Computed example of a mutant assay.
Amino acid sequence: MRAAGAVVWRWRSTGHGAEVAVVHRSRYDDWSLPKGKRNPRETRQATAVREVAEETGMAVALGRSLGSVRYRVLSPDGAGRTVVEYFSAHALGGDFGPGDEVDDLRWLPVHEARAVLTREADRQVLDRFAAAPPDLRTVLLVRHARAGSREEWAGADEFRPLSGRGRKQAEALADLLPVFGPTRVHSAPMTRCLDTVSPVARALGAAVVAEPALTEEAFAREPAAAEDRLLALVGLPETVVVCSQGGAIPSLLSRLAANGGVELPAPRSRKASTWVLSFLPSRPVLVAADYISNPRGW
């Protein structure tokens, strides 16, 4: 069984640090991080956002992945395995109301929340959250969706459009990416890149800003300029969607990872994939990179 949840955080009203939400589940009489089961055809990110809303009343913007927890549960058909994926989640507002599943919620500093949580697995997730500042800057680096065949396209390559499958992938990205709370959309000025993030931009009510430095040709000529431009976007006090090409993304990621001291596997860049890049709030240094290979899948 698949499930997802989050470490939900907000700034303390006293202005001294962050506090996180822990919930009491009446059925189990335990204190837990908000989490729940996946609905059919739901991404793990959407599951986390929905379950947080149902259990805490909070609307949230997701941040970096906090990894997964695996455990076995008893079911009518015998023991089964549950995998829970966790995310950092910034509380944007809302009001808690007791329900059948969750009857109490506490906002606590991290060290107090750790002492309250019933399960060691939840405490380990909270430790991962506490290993970096809560307010990391997020950039969603997207590779364009599938385009029509280059061999069958008679025009200039920069104008080659998305295929039918690519348009479906673009619509799926428009469902996925808003859970991270982006407010800006930037793209390499290639038709297939612009068309990939146009549905996201429409969903957000934002314009798509052209980024000539982030095409693969521009990256090949001046990789440092492409890196500088991406880091300039990191400096904005907003979460940004950025669309680029497969000839630029892996090498650009390697440069960012080397500068931040982050160990990455060989950077991947499937069409319509997204890298969730997390940077320090005080300076544009990469501290985490999470890969979403498929906008519809787990």
Rank of each mutant, 00 (worst) to 15 (best):
V84Y: 09
E19N: 10
V287P: 01
L108A: 02
A145N: 04
G297C: 10
G15Y: 03
R119H: 15
V185P: 01
V240I: 02
W11H: 14
H24E: 01
P265I: 02
D175R: 05
V110S: 09
W9R: 09
S32E: 03
R202E: 13
G5A: 06
R128N: 10
H16S: 08
R128E: 15
R25L: 13
Y71T: 07
T138L: 06
P161S: 15
D29A: 15
A130E: 14
A113M: 05
Y86T: 07
G297V: 01
P98R: 11
D77Y: 13
T82A: 10
R25E: 14
V22G: 00
G148H: 07
D157K: 03
A132R: 14
L280I: 02
A220V: 04
A207Q: 14
L62N: 09
D122S: 13
D175L: 05
G97H: 12
A79M: 10
T239V: 14
A288N: 04
A224E: 15
C193S: 15
P161R: 15
Q124T: 14
A213C: 12
S163P: 05
A207L: 13
W275G: 02
P295L: 12
H144Q: 11
I292Q: 12
R44W: 07
A188M: 10
F96S: 07
D77G: 13
G155V: 13
V197E: 04
D100R: 10
A232V: 03
S26P: 09
L126Y: 07
T191H: 00
L264K: 00
G166L: 13
V49W: 11
G181C: 11
E19S: 08
V200M: 07
V49K: 11
D95F: 09
R221D: 08
V240Q: 04
R72F: 06
T183N: 00
A206Y: 10
A225W: 00
G57C: 05
A61D: 15
V73K: 07
N39A: 15
V7D: 12
Q245L: 06
G148Q: 11
A272T: 06
P295D: 15
E171I: 02
H24A: 07
V69S: 14
L117K: 01
V242L: 05
E222I: 01
T118D: 01
S65H: 13
A225D: 12
R123D: 09
A224F: 00
F87Y: 14
D100H: 08
V69Q: 13
L277R: 09
K168F: 09
F96H: 05
L264E: 01
L176D: 03
M190H: 05
R114Y: 02
L194Q: 07
V139Q: 07
D29W: 06
P284N: 11
L277F: 12
L252R: 01
A130P: 02
F96N: 01
S26N: 12
T56I: 11
R296A: 15
G235H: 09
V276N: 03
N294G: 00
E85Q: 06
A272R: 01
L253P: 00
A206N: 08
M58C: 08
D95N: 01
A213I: 00
V23L: 05
R202I: 09
V285F: 08
R296H: 10
G164H: 05
P109N: 04
F129R: 02
A218W: 09
W153D: 12
E101V: 10
